Lab assay of single mutants.
Amino acid sequence: DYEVGESVTVMDGPFATLPATISEVNAEQQKLKVLVSIFGRETPVELTFGQVSKI
């Protein structure tokens, strides 16, 4: 299970290999909103559970 505030690594898509912090969890739809730090700015990205891995 994923929790808000948890650190994960993006495994898929254009942000693969980047660390991210979970900002929202939708367990019903198996989706997460995460904040990816790009060029010093936090960018919100919506991903599925399968696109991230716990650190």
Rank of each mutant, 00 (worst) to 15 (best):
V45P: 00
L32D: 02
E28C: 09
T48C: 10
F39W: 10
K54R: 10
P44M: 15
V52G: 01
G13T: 03
L47R: 00
T48R: 10
E3A: 13
K54A: 06
E24N: 07
E42M: 07
V10N: 01
T48I: 06
T43P: 03
T17S: 13
G13C: 04
E28L: 11
E6R: 04
V34E: 00
V45K: 03
S23N: 08
K33L: 15
E3F: 14
M11D: 05
K54D: 03
L47A: 03
P19W: 11
M11R: 09
V36Y: 02
T48S: 14
E24W: 13
G40C: 07
L35D: 04
S23R: 10
Q51G: 04
K31H: 07
K33W: 15
V45N: 02
K33E: 06
V4D: 03
S37C: 12
T17R: 11
L35G: 02
Q29T: 13
V10W: 02
F39D: 15
K31R: 12
V10T: 01
A16S: 08
R41M: 14
I55E: 09
Q30K: 12
Q30S: 09
K33A: 06
V36T: 03
I22P: 00
V8D: 01
S7E: 13
V52L: 03
V25Q: 02
A20F: 03
M11S: 08
G40L: 04
T9R: 12
V36N: 00
I38C: 09
T43C: 10
I22F: 00
L47N: 00
E28I: 10
F15Y: 15
E3H: 14
A20W: 02
K31G: 05
V52P: 01
S53W: 07
G5H: 03
T17N: 14
E24Y: 11
T21R: 12
V25P: 01
T9Q: 10
L35A: 05
S23M: 15
T43N: 08
G40V: 03
E3T: 12
P19K: 14
P44H: 14
D1A: 13
E28K: 11
F39E: 14
V34D: 01
D12L: 09
T17I: 04
Y2P: 04
V8M: 02
E42D: 11
I22A: 01
F49W: 08
A27T: 12
D1L: 14
I55Y: 10
L35H: 07
A20G: 14
S7F: 12
V10Y: 01
G50F: 10
G5R: 03
P44I: 15
P14A: 08
I38G: 08
F39G: 15
F39K: 12
S7M: 15
F39Y: 11
M11V: 12
E3Y: 14
N26P: 01
Q51H: 04
Q30I: 03
V10F: 03
V4K: 06
Q30G: 13
P44T: 15
V10C: 04
P19D: 08
V36P: 01
V36A: 02
G50E: 13
S7N: 11
I22G: 00
E6A: 08
P44L: 15
D12N: 10
A20C: 07
V36F: 03
F49K: 02
G40K: 03
A27C: 11
P44Y: 15
L35N: 08
V25Y: 04
K33D: 03
P19S: 13
T9H: 08
V52I: 07
E6N: 07
G5F: 04
A16F: 05
Q30C: 10
V4L: 07
Q51C: 05
A20P: 00
L35R: 06
I55A: 11
E24F: 10
Q51E: 07
A27M: 13
V45L: 12
V34I: 06
A16T: 08
K54G: 05
V45G: 03
L18Y: 14
V45F: 07
S37R: 12
S7C: 11
L32M: 08
V36R: 00
I55C: 08
T17E: 08
K54F: 06
V4R: 05
T48W: 10
E46W: 09
F15L: 05
K31M: 13
Q29F: 09
S7T: 15
E24L: 07
S37V: 15
G50K: 12
T9P: 01
V25D: 01
N26W: 14
S53Y: 08
A16Y: 06
Q51P: 01
V34P: 00
S23H: 10
E24Q: 08
I55S: 10
A27E: 11
T21M: 09
A16G: 05
S23Q: 14
G13L: 02
Y2F: 14
V52C: 04
S53Q: 14
D1T: 13
T17L: 10
F15S: 02
P14F: 07
L32A: 01
T9I: 15
I55G: 11
T43A: 06
I55F: 10
G13E: 02
E24H: 10
I55V: 11
T21N: 05
P14N: 05
E28N: 09
T21L: 11
K31D: 02
Q29L: 12
E6I: 06
Q51L: 04
P14Y: 07
T43M: 10
A20S: 04
S23V: 15
V36E: 01
G13P: 03
S53G: 09
Q51M: 08
P44Q: 15
G13N: 02
L47Q: 01
V25N: 02
I38T: 08
I38R: 06
V34S: 00
Q51F: 04
T21V: 14
D12W: 14
Q51W: 04
L32E: 01
M11H: 06
V36L: 09
K33H: 09
V36C: 05
S53I: 11
Y2E: 00
K33P: 01
V25R: 02
G40M: 05
L35Q: 06
E46M: 08
V4N: 04
N26S: 08
T9S: 06
D1I: 13
V34Q: 00
V4C: 05
K54N: 06
D12S: 13
I22E: 00
I55Q: 10
L47M: 07
K31A: 07
S7R: 15
F39C: 14
S7A: 13
G50L: 13
L35E: 05
E42A: 06
L32Y: 05
K31L: 14
V34G: 03
E42Y: 11
E46Q: 07
E28S: 11
M11C: 08
T17D: 09
L18G: 03
V25S: 03
E3W: 11
M11G: 04
F49H: 03
V4M: 05
R41W: 11
Q30Y: 08
K33Q: 11
S37A: 09
A20E: 00
V4Q: 05
A27R: 14
A27V: 13
E46R: 05
K33C: 10
L35T: 10
N26Y: 14
V4T: 05
R41G: 10
L18N: 06
D1V: 13
M11W: 05
T17Q: 12
E24P: 00
P19T: 15
I38D: 06
M11A: 07
V52Q: 00
P19R: 14
T48L: 11
G13F: 03
T17Y: 13
K33Y: 10
E6L: 06
S53D: 07
E6K: 05
I55D: 10
A20I: 03
E28P: 09
A20T: 03
T21H: 06
N26M: 12
E3L: 12
E6T: 07
T43F: 15
M11T: 13
G50Y: 11
E46Y: 09
T43G: 04
A16L: 04
L47C: 07
T43Q: 12
T48A: 11
K31P: 02
Q30E: 09
P19I: 15
N26C: 11
A27W: 15
V52A: 05
E3I: 13
T9L: 15
D1G: 14
S23K: 12
V10G: 00
E3K: 13
